[in-house]
Design a protein around this nucleic acid. Structure first.
Length: 182
DNA sequence: TTCTGGATGCTT
DNA sequence: AGCATCCAGAAT
């Protein structure tokens, strides 16, 4: 059975193309949908409806004035998705630098909000089929990395579930922060 | 219409 | 450890 945590691990080392920039995914989090209180799909609302649709589509949500990008993974009735938390820019680094301003290269796509900014992903990309080449798409897997796992960042519910996965030792991975009330 | 609380990021 | 920031969902 390929549950959402396995789908999350499989996304590590894959390329994500967004508006002229390509990132190698280095950090993800799995959200289990109907069984996971931390998932937006735990309550079915207009916002979470996209996760009840076909897999390999892009779910973009806004939080604290930032965007966050998720891959809807299915199976459809479970409404699971994987949050893309960080990556290494491997193409279009000049464009990414322009979008992000003066930060170190390894920090260009460190954190969900920073990654979407570097790749130019906004709410306009909501629902994009990631198997189509434009405007946002998943590419090939360029490495099979050593994977580390731990609790998800900033979630209050299911705070100890180790569903955050990252490329071990990679400098572009964000730092762990527990939810204050978790 | 108003209130509450974050799947954040940056500064101190 | 604090705060800027802002929308979705829930309460009223």
């Amino acid at each position: 059975m390929t549950d959402v945590s396995q789908r999350a691990r499989d996304l590590l080392g894959r390329l994500l193309h967004g508006h002229g920039v390509v990132a190698r995914i280095t950090e993800v989090e799995a959200y289990g949908g109907i069984d996971d209180p931390a998932s937006h799909a735990f309550v079915r609302t207009p916002r979470s409806e996209i996760m009840y649709g076909p897999p390999w589509r892009l779910y973009v949500y806004r939080i604290h004035g930032h965007h966050a990008a998720n891959v809807v993974t299915g199976p459809t009735e479970r409404a699971a998705a994987v949050l893309i938390r960080a990556g290494e820019i491997v193409e279009g680094i000049d464009v990414a630098r322009e979008r992000r301003g003066p930060v170190a290269d390894e920090a260009l796509a460190r954190g969900p909000g920073n990654l979407t900014k570097a790749l130019g992903i906004t709410s306009l990309d909501l629902g994009t089929d990631l198997l189509d080449p434009e405007p946002v798409s998943l590419g090939e897997r360029v490495e099979s990395p050593e994977i580390a796992a731990g609790p998800r960042v900033g979630v209050r519910l299911n705070a100890d579930l180790p569903w955050r996965f990252w490329v071990a030792g990679d400098p572009t991975v964000s730092t762990y922060r527990r939810h204050p009330r978790a």
